[in-house]
């Protein structure tokens, strides 16, 4: 895990965004991805039209990529419902930068 931490801690915001974008594209699926533009300003439930179960899938994939210790599920579940509905890719990047 130390090795993972060391590896991820050197990632730039752009590199983290690239990884997050790849994960999001895989969840949305190749049949639909052309209909969406993933940017740092994209909202998950609005712009990307993600369902709650897809948010869970996203959380699990982040855990697999960045390690269990990022505590992303706990962070997500502590958001007020209104904030969760308005959650942007940027918010996740901020959180990941803080953790890594």
């Amino acid at each position: 895990m130390d090795h993972l931490k060391k590896e991820t801690s050197t990632r730039t915001r752009q590199e983290i965004f690239d990884k997050v974008s790849t994960i999001l594209a895989a969840i949305i699926g190749e049949d639909f991805i052309d209909e969406y533009e993933i940017t740092q300003e994209s909202t998950f439930t609005g712009d990307l039209e993600m369902e709650s179960i897809e948010l869970v899938e996203f959380s699990e994939k982040l855990k697999a990529e960045f390690g269990e210790e990022i505590g992303f599920a706990a962070w997500l579940s502590n958001l007020e419902l209104e904030r969760l509905v308005m959650l942007k890719v940027n918010d996740v990047l901020d959180y990941l930068e803080e953790c890594l």
């Binding site: 179960i53 869970v56 899938e57 599920a73 997500l76 579940s77």
Partner: peptide, 30 residues
Amino acid sequence: GNLSQFYLSIGPDLAKTYKVLLYDLKSHGK
């Protein structure tokens, strides 16, 4: 419903102490 009902609410709080298993019932979620 599906497992997100509790993954996005009290599941992570319970996980501070317990291993928490969430699953989708048949024909639900994924």
